[in-house]
């Protein structure tokens, strides 16, 4: 019995690796810049926001460029994964209709693919931060990065699984999500500090599932400390996201093949 279970988990691992490798190989096919795109995107956003908020609106945050990068890299992972989520099952219709394999692994591998790009961008970020003289890579990254990585992966995975499952039936989800992510981007402390939010709106920040993660990444990457308060909050959000994601998935997965 234990052997059978070990074999099954081994197989699931192989499935995730294979699907992730496929995504990585396919992603930058026929592009000239290839992997550089996963660096270029956040950098271009950071430059744009720097111009808008530092050069023009003169926001009072020291080292604003590094500040922006530290929030935009994890945000990019989050938002890219969620934007891919609606099509996770829909785009794989032939597989979903014919093969009975654990389909949630499709979502897991797309979160992993984006996570991989994020991890690969981190060293570049570290160099940029050192060059900018805002901070130096800290030892705390060694445990802080894996902890935050796992938490963020779980939060994204749970939400993405629910989104992917619902989008099989209501393609509106895809449009809603694009809108929601734009709104959430401005409601999450990516381009500002959470303390800058007026007291009246402070309590609402607690309802934003992405706020603690982004704050924690920035504290870690720029300040070198792991914000345990944010880690706790994110851990709860991760548990809720994964639970809800799987509940929705299990409710709907038997209807996938008929709806596609």
């Amino acid at each position: 019995m234990r052997d059978a279970r070990a074999a099954r988990w081994g197989y699931y691992r192989d499935l995730v690796i294979t699907l992730t490798m496929k995504e990585v190989k396919v992603r930058y096919k026929r592009t000239v810049l290839g992997y550089a795109w996963s660096l270029l995107n956040p950098v271009v956003y950071a430059v744009t926001y720097w111009i808008a908020f530092k050069a023009i609106l003169n926001v009072r945050i020291e080292g604003y460029f590094a500040f922006l990068l530290a929030g935009l890299f994890p945000w990019q992972w989050l938002s890219n994964s969620l934007l891919l989520a609606p099509n996770a099952f829909v785009a794989n219709a032939p597989l979903v209709k014919k093969i009975a394999f654990p389909r949630y692994l499709i979502v897991a591998s797309s979160v992993a693919t984006e996570g991989l790009h994020f991890l690969l961008a981190l060293p570049v970020f570290a160099i940029a931060v050192v060059a900018y003289d805002r901070a130096a890579p800290a030892w705390s990254w060694l445990w802080g990065v894996p902890v935050l990585f796992m938490l963020q992966a779980a939060v994204i995975y749970g939400i993405a699984l629910a989104v992917a499952s619902c989008n099989v039936f209501f393609r509106d989800i895809e449009r809603l999500l694009v809108l929601a992510l734009t709104v959430l981007f401005f409601l999450t402390p990516v381009i500002y500090e959470p303390q800058m939010v007026p007291a009246l709106f402070q309590p609402w920040l607690a309802f934003n599932p992405f706020a603690p993660l982004i704050v924690a990444w920035r504290t870690l990457l720029l300040g070198g400390t792991l914000d345990m308060h944010a880690v706790h909050a994110s851990a709860w959000i991760a548990v809720v996201a994964v639970t809800v994601g799987h509940l929705v998935f299990h409710q709907l997965q038997w209807k996938f093949a008929e709806a596609m």
């Binding site: 197989y11 294979t18 396919v26 026929r30 597989l95 394999f101």
Partner: peptide, 29 residues
């Protein structure tokens, strides 16, 4: 036995697709 090309990714090589399809159909890497 999948219908024509189901589960194949057009941009991947035949070799990569064998791996992809084989694992999807239940084999270990």
């Amino acid at each position: 036995l999948l219908e024509l090309g189901a589960g194949f990714h057009p941009e991947l090589t035949g070799r990569d697709n064998i791996m992809l399809n084989g694992v999807l159909l239940g084999l270990r890497r």
